[in-house]
């Protein structure tokens, strides 16, 4: 599993592509507690949940740049 993923990540780096699937996110809208008016957009906090494979890819790339580049 890890071997095939690493192949995929190296392919991304070699092709110089950050796939669109990594940029898709799910946004969750959380109401902030004790707000006077919940019809105002600023009474909410948005949390964007990104693709886990994408986050792992970014972490691997950062690691590579920091220590092995």
């Amino acid at each position: 599993m890890g071997a095939r993923l690493s192949v995929f990540y190296y392919a991304c780096i070699q092709c110089g592509v950050h796939p669109n699937g990594f940029e898709a996110s799910t946004t969750v809208v959380l109401p902030k507690p004790n707000q006077p008016d919940y019809s105002a957009p600023k009474a909410y906090r948005l949390i964007a949940l990104f693709n886990c494979l994408g986050k792992l890819f970014e972490k691997c790339t950062a690691q590579e740049m920091q220590f092995n580049a």
């Binding site: 392919a11 092709c15 592509v17 796939p19 990594f22």
Partner: peptide, 9 residues
């Protein structure tokens, strides 16, 4: 190529 990467993902 990069299209192959996109398709696979």
């Amino acid at each position: 190529d990069h299209e192959h990467v996109e398709r696979a993902l």
